[in-house]
């Protein structure tokens, strides 16, 4: 392969042999040198931390560095930790609700916008704009947006007669999750939307013409042409969303502070609290490895699914 790259596989005459082998050696050296800088960063800030973290998870490890090897004890404790189990369950529930919701709404918006020529740029901008804001900005906007009495949402709901008493969005565990999901949808839908929009624009016009000739109605066209053509994008979106949902932390920390009474704490919240508030580094590392394992399984499922749906 390297030979082919060097000579284009054409000039294989005897006269080219000597310079070619020296070029090839020079090529190896350049090749290694060009990969080296990244590799150093990779080793120092990805590989070594992972291995180190895995090691730490077998210790009772305090912030100041007092450590005792305790084998699998952290993992055993983890399984009996009521709070961790609650946080894990919260994270799973959030994922199960938000992934289909965000994927579905993103697809709906993309299908709507794809059919509109005039004003498409305005729609694209509107749906994508929140995505460029940081989690701090969107969280604070939503906290103020959701306030009882003064917040815009309650005022609008009261104005159109949907409610007649104040909703305390952030004081009830179900409503607090609903708030986090609303804010997350608003913030991240732009990403899902543009992926679907790009997928829709890749579907050849001829497919739709053929469906039109067959007399397919709008729903049939969507069901048998559009949706199957988007299978790759859909798998991609679902997997990326699932992984992102499992890692949710910022919204829960900043919108609800994990409350009310810890009802909106998540797995990464557990890492944060155990690692950096009670400083149990070993225990927090064990949680991080459980999270990593879950995400690895999702990624492997993705690889299998992608293979199934092919190119």
């Amino acid at each position: 392969m390297a030979t082919k790259t060097l000579t284009g596989g054409k000039n294989t005459g005897a006269s080219a042999r000597a310079p070619r082998s020296s070029l090839r050696r020079q090529g190896w050296v350049t090749g290694v040198l060009m990969v080296l800088p990244y590799t150093i960063f990779f080793l120092l800030f990805s590989m070594i931390p992972i291995l180190y973290g895995f090691g730490v998870s077998f210790y009772d490890w305090s912030l100041l560095g007092d450590k005792t090897f305790i084998g699998l004890q952290n993992y055993v404790n983890l399984m009996q930790d009521e709070e961790f189990r609650t946080n894990l369950l919260n994270t799973v529930l959030f994922t199960v609700v938000s992934v289909p919701l965000i994927t579905g709404v993103g697809l709906l918006l993309a299908v709507m916008v794809n059919g509109i020529r005039k004003g498409q740029a305005f729609l694209r901008i509107s749906f994508f704009m929140p995505y460029v804001l940081s989690v701090s900005v969107i969280s604070s906007i939503w906290v103020i947006f959701l306030q009882p009495y003064t917040g815009l949402l309650n005022r609008v709901l009261r104005g159109i007669g949907l409610i007649n008493s104040e909703i305390f969005w952030l004081s009830d565990s179900t409503l607090a999750w609903a708030s986090i999901i609303m804010a997350t949808l608003w913030w991240t839908i732009g990403f899902v939307f543009v992926l679907f929009l790009a997928g829709l624009q890749d579907i050849p016009e001829s497919y739709y013409e053929a469906a039109g000739l067959e007399g397919a109605n709008r729903w049939q066209t969507f069901r048998y042409i559009t949706f199957p053509s988007l299978s790759r994008v859909t798998v991609l979106v679902v997997v990326l969303q699932t992984i992102a949902s499992f890692k949710i932390f910022g919204q829960s920390k900043l919108i609800t502070g994990g409350g009310p009474a810890g009802a909106t704490k998540t797995v990464v919240f557990s890492i944060y609290e155990n690692g950096f508030q009670t400083f149990q580094m070993g225990y927090a590392s064990a949680i991080a490895f459980v999270l990593m394992l879950v995400i690895l399984v999702i990624s492997l499922l993705q690889t299998l699914l992608m293979r199934r749906f092919g190119e």
């Binding site: 931390p49 992972i50 180190y52 992984i243 890692k247 690692g275 590392s285």
Partner: peptide, 24 residues
């Protein structure tokens, strides 16, 4: 081999390295 190693590292969430990164 190196490329495949890098590729598989894409599956590792940044959250998994918070503790060791802090210590290091």
């Amino acid at each position: 081999v190196l490329f495949i190693l890098f590729l598989s590292a894409m599956m590792i969430p940044g959250e998994a390295t918070l503790i060791p990164l802090y210590l290091l």
